[in-house]
Amino acid sequence: MRGLWSAALLVLILDQASKWAVVWGLNLKDRLVIDVAPPYLRFVMGWNEGINFGLFSGAPGAARWILIALALAICAWVIRFARADGQRRVLWAAGALVGGALGNVVDRLRFGAVADFLNMSCCGINNPFAFNLADVAVFTGAAALVLWARPANTP
């Protein structure tokens, strides 16, 4: 279980530090766009009140608390699932997912929305969406769980 908590804490710290450095340190909240290596990497300020790709944003204030509760419930389920599996790599993958989810929960508690700022485009495809390191950790952690977790009832 130490791997799960280590990964979760590492992701949470990296996520919150990156948001502080870019959103406040580089003043992206007021500048709104910073071209780092266009079009491959731009910092674009976005406050996501909903879920992925802004779905359900603009919903009543209660939605914020529902999304926080849902994220915490999913974290609890993932922790239980990873403990039952027991493989080191599964615990680390679960930790990445949990740390990312908690990073976004911290944003919702502090600001009422998730701070997104990474925007990447390539090869003639213009990506209109922004994301953050927590989103990357949630996605990679979930993908790793799908690939590495043992099927149910398997020794």
Rank of each mutant, 00 (worst) to 15 (best):
R83A: 09
A63K: 12
A101P: 01
M120F: 15
V78S: 01
A94K: 03
E49M: 12
A134F: 01
G58L: 04
G99S: 05
D30S: 05
D35G: 08
F43Y: 14
I125F: 09
T140Q: 10
A152W: 11
L118P: 00
P128K: 08
L97S: 04
L67K: 08
F81K: 07
G54I: 07
S57Y: 08
G61R: 13
C122N: 05
I34S: 07
C122T: 15
N132P: 02
C75P: 08
G86Q: 11
I74R: 08
D35C: 07
W24P: 03
I66V: 12
N52P: 01
A149S: 12
L97R: 02
A113T: 06
Q87F: 14
I66K: 10
I66Y: 12
V36I: 14
F111K: 00
G112R: 00
P39R: 03
L102C: 10
L72D: 05
W24A: 02
V114G: 00
C75H: 07
R110L: 12
N132T: 06
R88N: 13
W148S: 02
A63G: 08
F81I: 10
M45Q: 06
V106M: 04
A96L: 13
L72S: 08
L145K: 04
P60K: 14
V138R: 00
L97N: 06
G61Y: 06
F81W: 09
G103L: 01
L28A: 02
A21Q: 04
K19N: 03
D135H: 11
V98A: 11
M120H: 05
L145Q: 02
L102Y: 06
W20I: 11
A59T: 13
N127V: 10
G86M: 15
I74S: 05
A69W: 12
W65I: 12
G86C: 11
D135I: 01
G50D: 02
F56N: 07
A101Y: 03
R42Q: 13
D107K: 00
L109K: 09
R42P: 15
A149R: 04
G95L: 05
D135E: 05
A152K: 08
R88V: 09
L55V: 10
F131Y: 07
P39L: 06
F139N: 05
R80M: 03
L109N: 07
F111A: 01
I79Q: 07
L72W: 02
G95D: 02
L70W: 15
G25K: 13
A144L: 14
S121Y: 03
V44S: 06
A96Q: 07
T140G: 12
V22G: 03
A113R: 03
R80S: 12
G50Q: 03
G50M: 02
L91K: 15
L32Q: 14
L41G: 10
W148I: 11
A82V: 14
